[in-house]
Design a protein around this nucleic acid. Structure first.
Lengths: 203, 203
DNA sequence: ACCTGAACACCGTTCAAGT
DNA sequence: ACCTGAACACCGTTCAAGT
């Protein structure tokens, strides 16, 4: 019954979900194709019907991660559409961090070493997410809230900072004195404030 | 001769160097204990004499990375001691990025999932590096160049941004339009400028 | 103390084959 | 088209043993 359904075309989806769960619970180092296949109840070669190799499956998970992140960014941008662009940008940052904390499997994979040349859909999905930030920045520049630098450069700065903070938060590599009683969300929001405001006097 | 020397106590060092080289050339996913041992010319169990398991060896590489980074930061801070603290902070950022581009093995490992609780020397080495940034920030605050926020928070912001940029640069995950003809060093310096100056109008 | 060899339970991937 | 089973060359790790 369940097994038969794979013959109907959702083994690919089952593999993505299974890989995701395994990465989340055991870490990417302990995720194996064979274990995923076993969990799904399929032979250890079945995955090769849908993915060229292990890397291709991981790249597909990464792509899915970007797509889900894009969706969440769209939602939060929509929900904050009455607020200022700066508020929107902050909301995007918080959403990004929350997404990565809630979906650590994606975090482990989204910026991994899966060359964009080999996985063009992954590249597109990644740029699509970043594009959401760029759009908010551009609107903030039009409304005079954000400095008139290259919007891609500004969004890119936020983008890379968010990624750095996510991984450092996730792997517990922050100095204990900094974490103290703040939640990841609060930490992220505080860090991002520093970036928005700048660190130099008389900026 | 060479083999005998391992009996004299430098197998541990040879393992660190070998692991580093292998990560740099083949990536961390393709690094194996057995291959490292083979390259060094020792049995596949010899590593266990010096490291509890593969993770412990990787954590040791990470620790070494932080120590070398700390040394490079010390050097550049010393060399720029006549300049302003802001110039020093920028020089630290450039040094950090250059270090990670030149030593991608360390980059792949330094913020990896090796729990600080299990590897206290790694934790210490990591905080030691960050401490260098904190010191520069604190001096910049004393001289009135840098805003009087919590210096750890400010240095932490730079720290996480540098990490995010390194990994994104290294894995080629930057939008092509951004990279264009800029070198990694230029990119880093430009991105960091945005962070120093802030992105909001009237910061 | 430092290293080796055999053994175990696992991998990713390929190939021929089954429906 | 979609899946399986056997086979290959690898892993990390443990254990008993060698000097």
């Amino acid at each position: 019954m369940n097994k038969d359904s794979y013959h109907h075309g959702d083994l690919k989806h089952a593999l993505l979900v299974g890989a995701c769960e395994m990465i989340a619970t055991e870490g990417i180092q302990n995720m194996s194709l064979r274990k995923v296949a076993r969990k799904i109840g399929v032979s250890h070669n079945a995955p090769y019907q849908h993915f060229a190799d292990k890397e291709a499956l991981l790249a597909a998970v990464a792509q899915e991660g970007f797509q889900r992140l894009t969706d969440e960014l769209d939602t939060v941008i929509e929900r904050t559409s009455t607020q200022s662009c700066v508020e929107q940008l902050k909301a995007c940052g918080n959403t990004y961090i929350k997404f990565m904390m809630d979906n650590s499997a994606y975090l482990e994979v989204m910026f991994g070493p899966y060359p964009y040349e080999d996985y063009p859909e992954l590249a597109e999905a990644g740029l699509e997410s970043l594009q959401r930030l760029i759009a908010v920045v551009a609107r903030g520049q039009a409304s005079g809230e954000i400095k008139s630098l290259n919007p891609v450069e500004v969004a890119g700065t936020v983008w890379m900072s968010l990624h750095g903070l996510s991984t450092i938060l996730r792997n517990g590599k922050l100095p204990p004195q900094l974490v103290s009683e703040r939640t990841p969300t609060q930490l992220a929001s505080d860090f991002l404030d520093v970036i928005y405001e700048g660190i130099l006097v008389q900026a």
